[in-house]
């Protein structure tokens, strides 16, 4: 019963497109968590012009788990997660076949409001990309474009998001300074805070540590693990150790195909497919 009302709430939210907030308590009920997939991709093919970049992907993402996508460069892993918040639409000449469902609703459908979708499915990019604004303004940006919050509420939300992103103590005395003065690792945590501020349900990490040093990487990984309690997380990574360290489930992509998908322990210790084994043992990639 609860799940039905949740679905309807989500449907209103996605389809009406006028900013109706989804039903409260979406995350409050642990008993629902492992029943329905948060996101599922059904028969997804994706083309850059004539080139087929993704081949018939079927994949489910469970809520409040961390799913890692690994694979060599050019295997389509980034292309795939960028479909989950429709970022690939910004690239001209692309075409998608198949369905992608968020809480059972098709996000590819033309009636789906893409701005609302992106508020529910946040993204952290490969290279830290804070705006050339102050630290405060970076985090407040997502709140301000929604426009409904009072100044005081925005300030609280910014503080709260920076705390969740484990950055508050480092920046609380210089919120008005430019975000570009932060180190790479701090910038990336700022981008995570900025993403958390709009209260997404899903967070997509597209190789979030690719440009960071090992210490910053460790901090981000630790942070991702704490975020798992609240959010559904998908992380694309080049770094197999990272996938092994943070994820619950791992998918291996190769040349646009999903080769193998299962529990992280299983994928790394006893892969079924020969190609997965070759990749994780370092025979190619």
């Amino acid at each position: 019963m609860h799940s039905a009302s949740k679905e309807r709430g989500a449907a209103d939210f996605l389809l009406s497109g006028n900013g109706v907030k989804s039903a409260p308590g979406l995350f409050g009920e642990a008993e629902n968590s492992c029943i329905e997939p948060k996101i599922s991709a059904r028969g997804v093919n994706f083309y850059y012009g004539p080139k087929r970049a993704l081949k018939d992907i079927n994949m489910d993402f469970s809520p409040r788990l961390i799913t890692a996508i690994i694979g060599p460069s050019g295997c389509g892993k980034s292309t795939f997660i960028r479909l989950l918040n429709r970022m690939n639409e910004l690239v001209p000449g692309t075409r998608l076949e198949g369905e992608i469902l968020l809480d059972g609703l098709d996000i590819v459908a033309p009636v789906c409001d893409v701005a609302e979708l992106r508020k529910r499915v946040g993204m952290v990019f490969q290279k830290p990309n804070p705006f050339p604004k102050s630290i405060f303004e970076n985090v407040a940006y997502g709140l301000e474009i929604n426009g409904s919050l009072a100044r005081r509420a925005i300030e609280e939300k910014v503080e709260d998001s920076l705390k969740k992103a484990a950055l508050w103590d480092e920046v609380k005395d210089r919120l008005r300074e430019s975000a570009l003065g932060l180190s790479g690792g701090q910038q990336q945590r700022l981008c995570i805070a900025r993403c958390l501020a709009v209260e997404p349900e899903v967070i997509l990490f597209d190789e979030p540590c690719a440009s960071l040093d090992p210490i910053s990487t460790a901090k981000i990984e630790e942070l991702i693990l704490t975020l798992k309690k609240t959010y559904t997380i998908v992380i694309v990574t080049h770094n197999m150790q990272q996938a092994a360290r943070v994820s619950d489930r791992t998918a291996f992509f190769l040349m646009g195909e999903l080769i193998e998908y299962g529990g992280t322990g299983m994928i790394f210790k006893a892969p079924h497919d020969r190609r997965t084994e070759d990749y994780i043992t370092g025979r190619f990639g």
Binding site: R118, F131, Y141
Partner: peptide
Amino acid sequence: RSFREASFALGANRWETLTRVIIPA
């Protein structure tokens, strides 16, 4: 381009991205 992507990824539309991110930058 990453500024534009960051803005869109936060649920901003084209107009908001233009006036609040691109033009100030």
